[in-house]
Computed example of a mutant assay.
Amino acid sequence: MKFFTFNKESGKNISKFNSDFIMSRIVQTNSAASIGCMHLGKNGLIGFHQAVGPQLLLIVSGEGLVSIDQEEYYKVQPGDAVFWEKDEWHETKSDNGLTAIVIESEELNPADLMPSK
C-alpha cells in the first residue's frame, strides 16, 4: 500500500486559454482502465479482499480507514490517494461515510504524476 496526494496544494495553476484553475494530475494509461465511484454510507465497508489488478482509490469526500492486514489502519480524507498492487490484500471502512473514485488498470503508476504523502 502506498499513499499519494491529489489535493489542491499538489496541483499546478492553469491559465492557458484564459483559464484560471488548479489541476492535480493523477494517472495516465495507454491501455484500458476501469473508473468507478464508490459511495460508503455510515459504517460502510469495502471488505477485506485481494486487488484483482493495480488499483488506485481517490478520496473525494468524507473520511475513513484503510488497512492491508486488518490490524493497523490508516486514516484517509479528501485529497488522499491509496494505491494497491495486484493481489495485495486490503480493506476500506468509514464510520460516517465517504465517496471515492477507484481506477483500475494494469498500467497504473501513480508515482509518475502524484507526490507521495
Rank of each mutant, 00 (worst) to 15 (best):
M1P: 13
M1T: 13
F3E: 15
F3W: 14
F3S: 15
F3K: 15
F4K: 12
F4N: 10
F4L: 14
F6T: 09
N7I: 08
K8R: 15
K8G: 01
K8Q: 13
S10H: 07
G11W: 11
K12Q: 14
N13Y: 10
N13E: 13
I14K: 09
S15P: 01
F17D: 02
F17N: 04
N18K: 13
S19N: 04
S19Y: 03
D20M: 05
F21E: 00
I22Y: 06
M23N: 11
V27S: 03
V27F: 08
V27A: 09
Q28T: 10
Q28I: 08
Q28R: 10
T29S: 08
N30K: 13
S31Q: 10
A32K: 12
A32I: 11
A33V: 14
A33G: 07
I35K: 07
G36E: 07
C37W: 08
H39S: 11
L40N: 02
G41H: 09
G41E: 10
K42L: 13
G44I: 07
G44P: 03
L45Q: 06
L45C: 05
I46C: 03
G47W: 12
G47A: 12
G47T: 13
F48L: 08
F48I: 03
F48T: 02
V52P: 12
P54M: 04
P54K: 12
L56G: 05
L56E: 06
L58A: 01
L58Q: 02
I59K: 00
S61E: 08
G62L: 01
E63G: 04
G64W: 03
L65R: 11
L65K: 12
V66A: 08
V66M: 06
S67P: 04
I68G: 13
I68V: 15
I68L: 12
I68C: 15
D69N: 15
D69C: 10
D69K: 12
Q70L: 14
E71I: 14
E71G: 05
Y73W: 14
Y74N: 09
K75A: 08
Q77V: 03
P78F: 03
G79D: 03
D80E: 09
D80A: 12
D80C: 14
D80F: 10
D80S: 15
A81E: 06
F83C: 08
K86W: 05
D87W: 08
E88T: 09
W89Y: 14
W89S: 04
W89D: 06
K93Q: 11
K93S: 11
N96P: 02
N96F: 13
N96R: 11
T99A: 04
T99G: 03
A100I: 01
I101A: 00
V102P: 00
I103W: 01
E104G: 05
E104K: 09
E104P: 01
S105Q: 06
S105V: 09
E107N: 05
E107R: 06
E107W: 06
L108Q: 01
L108S: 02
P110A: 00
A111T: 08
D112I: 05
D112K: 10
L113V: 01
L113K: 05
L113G: 00
M114A: 01
M114V: 06
P115Y: 01
P115T: 05
P115D: 00
K117M: 05
K117G: 04
